[in-house]
């Protein structure tokens, strides 16, 4: 038989245990039902971004032709950056680096950068940022066309010291009221191109 104290404990614990069990069951079922769809949504979103920065034709399943690289010096992040390789038949067409981290006014700016095999930028998009509303957020494709200015740039057609905003003597427009955000993005894109030139061969393997 249970003592009085044990019974008291039981009366408190039993409801918690039963409700926890019901909750766990419900969560499990919901997770089972939604996980595939959520994963699918996530891939769709990634693919949409990739296609935005990689307009060249490719024939491979780019989303699964992927390696992870780390390079704290050129890619400005300790964590892994995904490289999606675009190929036509067996020939490399270009690749997409994401997320490349740029230093913004308000923390990290995450970029997706598309580079053709010859080393020209095919597109840059902002994936996530926390720049100031109305000023620095002009780097985002939905707020202004600024980021489209990178298309077709390469280390060959844009001299090293012109990878800067115009007020720094460079070749890129600045956003009124915000120089730090564009500066960060320009640096990140240039560094990504440097990284590409150095590692070009190994990136397609």
């Amino acid at each position: 038989m249970m003592s009085r104290q044990q019974r008291k404990l039981f009366h408190v614990l039993a409801p918690i245990l039963i409700i926890s069990a019901i909750c766990a069951l419900l969560l499990g079922i919901t997770n089972q039902f939604t996980s595939e769809r959520i994963e699918d949504n996530r891939q769709q979103a990634t693919l949409r971004l990739i296609n935005d920065v990689m307009p060249l034709t490719y024939t491979n399943d780019l989303l699964n032709d992927r390696i992870d690289v780390t390079d704290a010096r050129y890619l400005c992040t300790e964590s892994a950056v995904s490289v999606f390789r675009a190929r036509q038949e067996q020939n490399p067409v270009g690749l997409v680096l994401m997320p490349v981290v740029a230093k913004g006014y308000n923390g990290r700016i995450e970029l997706a950068i598309g580079i053709s095999y010859q080393g020209e930028i095919t597109g840059v998009r902002v994936n996530a940022h926390r720049e100031t509303e109305g000023l620095g957020d002009g780097i985002h494709q939905e707020k202004s066309d600024w980021i489209l200015g990178f298309t077709d740039r390469s280390l060959a057609n844009t001299a090293i010291d012109t990878w800067a905003v115009q007020s720094d003597g460079g070749d890129f427009d600045q956003l009124s009221g915000a120089t730090i955000s564009p500066r960060g993005v320009i640096n990140a894109v240039k560094n990504a191109l440097d990284y590409y030139e150095i590692n070009k061969q190994s990136l397609y393997q």
Binding site: V12, P15, I16, I19, S20, C23, L26, L27, T30, N31, F33, T34, R37, I38, N41, R42, Q44, A45
Partner: peptide, 26 residues
């Protein structure tokens, strides 16, 4: 133990809603 139970129920409900929301309004 009303507080743990309330929290348990509210977190579970919201997590379920969140999962469904991610599935349909990603």
């Amino acid at each position: 133990v009303r507080l743990p139970i309330i929290l348990l129920i509210s977190t579970t409900t919201v997590t379920i809603i969140y999962l469904l929301f991610q599935a349909f309004f990603y």
